[in-house]
Design a binder for these strands. Structure first.
Length: 222
DNA sequence: CACCAGGCAAGTA
DNA sequence: TACTTGCATGGT
């Protein structure tokens, strides 16, 4: 049973996919690299995160043991291009500590329980909020959970699909209730939303060039 | 030059 | 509960 909202969402997805094609998210070679990137990209452009990841890769530090043992000050130097580096060193260490303490440092074990259990665990880590946790669950663990971000909220409100007052969980529930729980769909949709938001929602003159403009459901920005 | 990026936690009232 | 503020580098 496809709802009217579901049809509207699929329409948006089809337009975005036709316009921009597959975004190939998440760009990471391992699950650990994916999780590290998820923390580093918090309120930070991916371009800056790439530099930080590259620094870690060059030194072969992308393992649980190495990230556990490396002194915070040294790690801070390597991830510095990603910004907030003092904060993010702690967040990375918190995540590593969590995986070691709760899952014996085994990411496969971290990703084994049901989705809700994984989410609760990740959210218990200081520095991992809902978007970061859900990103790890979708792109890392490969579970069908829609990742919500500011652009998701922006696009869905502007097309009249959700209320302005909707919070993270409201938006996520709306998407989960109206779309098939398909991992590849969720991965691609979120990535396309972020690309669209970055390119067209930031400034008003660009909005008229947004491919979603042709749907006719987009509100005018005053 | 100003503005903002693939957020989050802690503080205030 | 509902706002506000600190965190920081690098691209446009």
């Amino acid at each position: 049973m496809i709802t009217a909202s579901g049809q509207a969402l699929i329409e948006i997805y089809n337009v975005l996919f036709a316009s921009f094609g597959p975004q190939n998210w998440w760009p990471a070679e391992t699950e650990l690299e994916m999780m590290v990137g998820a923390i580093l990209t918090q309120n930070t452009s991916w371009n800056n995160v790439e530099k930080a990841i590259q620094n870690l890769k060059e030194r072969d530090l992308l393992s649980i043991g190495d990230l556990r043992d490396i002194p915070a000050s040294i790690l801070g130097g390597y991830i510095r291009p990603a910004g907030y580096y003092n904060l993010k060193v702690k967040r990375l260490k918190n995540l590593i500590k969590f995986i070691e303490n709760e899952y014996d440092g085994d990411i496969n074990r971290l990703f084994s329980p049901d989705t809700d259990t994984i989410r609760k665990g990740l959210l218990s880590v200081k520095g991992i909020g809902m978007e970061t946790a859900d990103s790890i669950i979708l792109y890392g663990a490969g579970r069908p959970l829609f990742v919500v971000d500011t652009y998701t909220y922006m696009i869905l409100t502007r097309h009249g699909l959700i209320e302005d007052e909707a919070g993270y969980n409201d938006v996520q529930l709306f998407l989960m209730d109206n779309l098939p729980h398909d991992v590849e769909l969720f991965k691609e949709f979120h990535a396309l939303i972020v690309k669209t938001g970055k390119d067209f929602c930031r400034r008003r003159p660009l909005c008229s060039k947004c491919p979603l403009e042709n749907l006719g459901s987009c509100y005018e920005i005053t």
